[in-house]
């Protein structure tokens, strides 16, 4: 895991006006840049935006997209929508946990993959779905997983 520098996120903060109105878009950008939102970064953002730290922290912990833990190089998500559920998403979750030897939200030892589940991505016709970073894979069977992961 590469160490982030607070100065890397300064230009991002600079693009937004002070105040809480742009807090969520800003947090998205910062997380995209450094991968996660540790306490130190939250404090820094709070100060720069002139917003109480408590508000930044409450937002980071409320929304499931934000994480305070570093993530792996790629994020694999299994969709847990209704269609995926009835089409066997559970088998995918189980297999991925075994393959990567992680629990939900965990990162593999080689820091390559972080595994989690996701709310419906809306590609229900192709259930069950997994998503790796921005790529959507449809009608995935547990035995397809190795092939798919090899592409990363």
């Amino acid at each position: 895991m590469e160490k982030y520098h607070l100065r890397d996120i300064l230009p991002i903060i600079g693009e937004y006006e002070k105040g809480a109105g742009n807090l969520i878009p800003l947090l998205h950008e910062v997380q995209k840049k450094i991968g996660y939102l540790p306490k130190e970064v939250q404090e820094f953002i709070a100060e720069e935006l002139s917003v109480p730290y408590s508000q930044v922290h409450s937002v980071v912990t409320f929304y499931s997209f934000f994480t305070m833990e570093p993530r792996g190089e790629h994020t694999i998500s299994v969709c847990t929508g209704t269609a995926c559920h009835v089409k066997g998403a559970e088998g995918l979750t189980k297999k991925l946990k075994d393959m990567l030897d992680v629990e939900e939200g965990g990162t593999s030892d080689d820091r390559k993959f972080t595994f989690n589940t996701k709310r419906c991505v809306g590609a229900c016709s192709k259930a069950p779905i997994i998503m790796i970073d921005g790529d959507v894979y449809g009608k995935v069977q547990p035995e397809d997983l190795e092939d798919i992961l090899d592409r990363y």
Binding site: A20, P25, Q55, V59, Y63, R119
Partner: peptide
């Protein structure tokens, strides 16, 4: 354009507005 951050309750209108304001939804 405002992008959500993964909270179902934000589909409720008052929660959604709070979220645009940069608060918990």
């Amino acid at each position: 354009l405002r992008v959500g951050a993964g909270a179902f309750v934000c589909g409720e209108e008052t929660a959604l507005l709070s979220s645009i304001e940069g608060k918990q939804g």
